[in-house]
Write a protein that binds this DNA or RNA. Structure first.
Lengths: 136, 136
DNA sequence: ATGTAAATCGTAATCATTCTTAATTAGAAA
DNA sequence: TTTCTAATTAAGAATGATTACGATTTACAT
């Protein structure tokens, strides 16, 4: 996902263009990893010392709901990153050191199609955790 | 996992037998679902009105570290349940209504063995969420 | 029965997250 | 360009889960 595409989505849904939103998005475009709300606020406050948690969390929630960012829970904290470019369903290897991801193109649900009759399947989560080659 | 086995593990590791520990374990043995610390405290306080969060969380952490309980994060809260009997590696379907689980005997990592060379794989998570037949 | 380390209680502190109210701002309309 | 209005933000209080701490109690080895 890039800036232009993100703004297209935001504009389509009637959201206004603010410098803070833009800088949050730029940060995610340039820093391709999972970040916490706290991480984000720390970086943003270098340019906007008065930025509050509310702004961070409100915009993160907006971006996630529009599919601009994706979210996961790592060691008890919510982490956010720019949604991948690839529009096909996939999963992630996540480096627990640097937060960078590697896309895993296969989905285990493909092989479980009929394995759970009578169950209503609403969602699933498949993530692999470890160290990427650079951090190992 | 049953009470006897759980106490074997606790004793092996030098933990003392207390009535509260026993009642927490009994509760998990009899209520085969994912519960939050809050759920647990609410039930326990019927018999031990003075039980504190500290006791709940401390024992939950102990039980998880010894492999007596297993833990997962559901909609922003930690949930705990008795560790499954089956000692072979498996995953879970989790009913988001009643918290009950169904074991999924297959593991997607089996098919990804060599797909991530140069990566150090420490852990992985595969869970399926939805409604069980009873709740559907 | 006694001593000691472990366990628990009661409560305060902490951390992430959400909420509230008032002030500011982007973008539409005049 | 100026005005208007709804969206956005700031500042900080409130919430809810979790952890920490000093004082007290308890399990159990001796």
């Amino acid at each position: 996902m890039n800036l232009v595409k993100a703004w297209d989505i935001l504009k389509e849904n009637g959201y206004k263009e603010t410098s803070k939103r833009n800088q949050i998005l730029e940060l995610f475009v340039n820093d391709d990893r999972y970040l916490t709300a706290r991480d984000l606020l720390d970086v943003m406050q270098k340019d906007y010392p008065s930025m509050s948690y509310d702004t961070v969390y409100r915009n993160l929630a907006t971006f996630v709901s529009l599919g601009i960012l994706e979210e996961t829970e790592l060691s008890g904290e919510r982490h956010f990153r720019m949604h991948c470019e690839s529009d096909s369903h996939h999963h992630h290897f996540i480096c627990m050191d640097c937060g960078k991801i590697k896309e895993i193109p296969v989905c285990p649900m493909d092989m479980l199609g009929a394995a759970l009759p009578a169950y209503e399947i609403d969602n699933h989560k498949f993530e692999i955790y470890g160290k990427c080659p650079a951090c190992k």
